[in-house]
Design a binder for these strands. Structure first.
Ligand SMILES: [Zn+2]
Ligand SMILES: [Zn+2]
Ligand SMILES: [Zn+2]
Ligand SMILES: [Zn+2]
Lengths: 169, 169
DNA sequence: TTGTATATGTTATAACATAACATTATACCA
DNA sequence: TGGTATAATGTTATGTTATAACATATACAA
């Protein structure tokens, strides 16, 4: 028998180039529906469409990119609609916003109530992944407390080179 | 004799409400001039003016705020001029940009080549201060390395309540 | 001084985000 | 079921942040 469960993607691995991303998307949408049901919030059409577009890849996507994809079939959706959908998704912990990119990415740990918002962002393939490191959070909490500061929210965004992309020589 | 030097502001203390801020500014400008001399870059009029405006307080300031202050006397400076000055100041390590605020703040550790860019930002008084914690940096480096990631640059911005401002009850 | 690199001026536009108010859909109770 | 409140979306306009492109001016060294 197996000594550990074998999910299609290890939560702690940086997304691999050729992985079955359809399963990431399906998984996220399923969990999103569950979260909304539990919280009695409504995952309406446009909200789901935006969530699906965010999950098109692991590369953070801008609000206006989402907008143009929505309108690529001749639609006339306005920016407000996208921003409102994103606001809903943020409030419900279904997506994150990356301040350093002005872009959004699907949350990889829906329901886990992390809200740590620690990210690794590859400069080459532009993939972003959550780094919700407990030791890092502890060090951060400790360092902040030493300054007499009380944390309300944190942003940790680390830019560099992912395991699948080499730094330029 | 004193067992420790007594700078007018402890580098590790969060800026106090009533401190002698003129000295912060004078200090920063002096060091900025020294850095530019050493690096053979030119601290021109507009660059110095922008740096002075950034140092008006410990509250991060937006590019267009700087612009309107520059133009408050009837000037006609364009946004480009401000952004170019800010770009120069960033490149020379004289100011930092806070991604979570789209705003700029004077570097409190000019010359120390930290480039860590770890900040504490008070939600009440809006003051921002550099954290630059070595243990935090170590934890971060470690956590990132465990994921097979190579750091190029980091953003750490912590929002909360400074030692001089109470959290809302 | 004269060429070259650096800096600034100028105009326009791109990119990101929200305000304000009208309309439509949904939930939920009488 | 119908009425009413709430939530969601539509629509128009505007605010805010940042950069592109090209012209002119200034500094500085050969
Ligand atoms: Zn995937
Ligand atoms: Zn990569
Ligand atoms: Zn000060
Ligand atoms: Zn404060």
């Amino acid at each position: 028998m197996a000594t550990r469960t074998h999910k299609h993607t290890d939560t702690h691995a940086f997304p691999k180039p050729g992985h079955n991303h359809d399963r990431c998307t399906a998984d996220a949408l399923k969990k999103a529906a569950a979260v909304c049901a539990q919280r009695k919030t409504r995952l309406t059409d446009i909200r789901r469409e935006v969530l699906e577009l965010v999950w098109k890849s692991h590369v953070p996507v801008g609000a206006y990119d989402i907008l143009s994809q929505l309108n690529s079939g001749g639609g006339r959706t306005a920016p407000m609609a996208v921003y409102r959908a994103l606001e809903f998704l943020l409030e419900n912990g279904l997506v994150h916003r990356l301040a350093s990119l002005n872009a959004f990415i699907g949350c990889a740990h829906i329901g886990k109530d992390h809200h740590a918002a620690q990210f690794l962002i590859c400069r080459v393939c532009e993939t972003a992944a959550e780094l919700d490191s407990a030791p890092l959070t502890r060090a951060l909490t400790q360092a902040v407390a030493e300054r007499g500061f009380t944390i309300d929210s944190q942003i940790v965004e680390i830019s560099g080179f992912c395991p699948h992309c080499s730094p330029p020589t």
